[in-house]
Simulated scan of single mutants.
Amino acid sequence: MDNPFKKILQDEKLPVYIKDRVIDNLNFIKLSLDVSELYTVKVPQALGSVIGESDKKKEQELIEKIINAKKNENNDE
Score class of each variant (00 low, 15 high):
N74C: 11
Q45V: 02
Q45I: 08
I18H: 00
V22C: 02
S49M: 13
Q45H: 10
N25A: 15
I29F: 06
K19Q: 15
E77S: 09
L33N: 05
D55S: 13
S36Y: 07
L62D: 05
V41M: 05
E73F: 07
I66E: 11
D2I: 11
V35E: 06
K7A: 15
I18G: 02
M1G: 15
Q10V: 01
M1Y: 10
Q60Y: 09
K71R: 13
K13A: 13
K6S: 12
N27R: 10
Q60W: 00
I63S: 15
D2W: 05
S32H: 01
D24Y: 06
D20M: 07
K19C: 12
K56R: 15
P44L: 03
E61Y: 01
D76L: 14
K30A: 04
K42T: 10
L62Q: 08
Y39N: 08
Q60H: 10
D34P: 05
S54T: 07
F28D: 07
I66G: 02
D55C: 13
N68W: 08
E64F: 02
V50C: 04
K65S: 01
G52L: 04
K13H: 05
D76M: 07
E73G: 07
P44F: 02
E12Q: 11
I51C: 06
Y17L: 11
N68L: 07
G48K: 03
K70T: 03
E59S: 13
E64C: 08
N3P: 07
S54C: 01
V50S: 06
